[in-house]
């Protein structure tokens, strides 16, 4: 038997390039968010909109419980149902909270503890780092938007026994949560890259949503009385987007195509800006 002497020993394996070099960042980030304080509690409350709608689906499938005709009609109209689930069920607020919880310290803590240079001294480009971090937030956001939506689809199928979903609605069920998560994730990462102080990041990020919502409310309702100015509010823009995707009635007098343009545009600008912030870090 060969003897292993004291002292330094090399590693016998070979270092292989990964197809997704940033994937370990995502896995590690997901693990770290899960292990945060009060994570379970937050996840529990984040499931509330889903549970509420699940009960709705169940109720609608039981003829003996059909005492609320109005609600049943809405539940059975798929596009309206999912539009409601995504935009009026409190899910937007849940996603917002999740983005703060999972994303606010992702870059800012790295800035504080000088860890970006740890990443960049590995075979990673700044864009890989950003992609890995983005995927962490996206994972949690999709986990509580796309996944429950698909479960609702399954529940509907299960309870009613017939497949009623149109192709466009099914596509919208995928596209809407994806765009919403992308926008929230890129915004929270941008704010996270602004400061090494995570508290400041949270205040600024929450303040941004609060302020834009308020401004949109004042400008569209009071000053100019033009509902299209509601596009200043991320929340209203998302509803506008949902209206386009699910073919429901829009609340604003702006053309529908503006919404996806705005959402994708803001996301891309935020990501590009974050990338320059990362590149500027002294390695």
């Amino acid at each position: 038997m060969p003897v292993k002497e004291r002292g330094y020993h090399g590693w016998e394996g070979s270092l292989a390039p990964r197809r997704l070099p940033w994937f370990p960042i995502t896995l590690q980030g997901i693990r770290q968010v899960k292990d945060k304080k009060r994570a379970k509690l937050l996840f529990f409350f984040s499931a509330f909109p889903f549970l509420f709608f699940l009960i709705g689906v169940y109720v609608a499938s039981k003829p003996e419980l059909r005492f609320l005709d109005e609600i049943t009609r809405v539940i059975n109209d798929d596009s309206q149902f999912f539009d409601l689930f995504f935009t009026r069920s409190g899910l937007m607020f849940v996603l917002f909270l999740l983005s703060v919880y999972a994303g606010s310290d992702l870059i800012s803590a790295d800035l504080k503890f000088n860890s970006i240079q740890l990443y960049l001294s590995r075979p990673l480009k700044p864009i890989d780092y950003l992609a890995g971090k983005l995927a962490v937030v996206m994972f949690y956001l999709l986990m509580f938007s796309l996944v429950p939506a698909l479960l609702l689809v399954a529940a509907k199928l299960l309870f009613s026994g017939t497949w009623s979903l149109g192709f466009s609605t099914l596509a919208a069920i995928f596209v809407y949560p994806f765009l919403a998560s992308l926008a929230l994730a890129s915004l929270v990462l941008l704010f996270s890259s602004f400061s090494a102080n995570t508290r400041l990041v949270i205040v600024a990020y929450v303040g941004f949503f609060f302020f834009t919502n308020m401004l949109a409310g004042i400008l569209s309702g009071v000053v100019f009385n033009h509902s299209a100015l509601g596009l200043l509010s991320p929340e209203r823009t998302m509803r506008h987007l949902a209206a386009l995707l699910f073919g429901t009635k829009a609340a604003m007098a702006a053309p529908l195509w503006v919404a996806p343009l705005l959402v994708v545009g803001v996301s891309l600008v935020a990501l590009a800006w974050t990338l320059t912030r990362i590149r500027r870090v002294e390695v």
């Binding site: 590693w11 990964r18 503890f113 860890s115 590995r122 075979p123």
Partner: peptide
């Protein structure tokens, strides 16, 4: 300069860096 990733023990951090290098 000192650099670390907060909230990780040494084994996690070290193996994480190894993974990023392709292990």
């Amino acid at each position: 300069s000192h650099c670390l990733i907060p909230g990780m023990d040494a084994v996690t951090l070290t193996s994480y860096m190894g993974e990023l290098s392709g292990m």
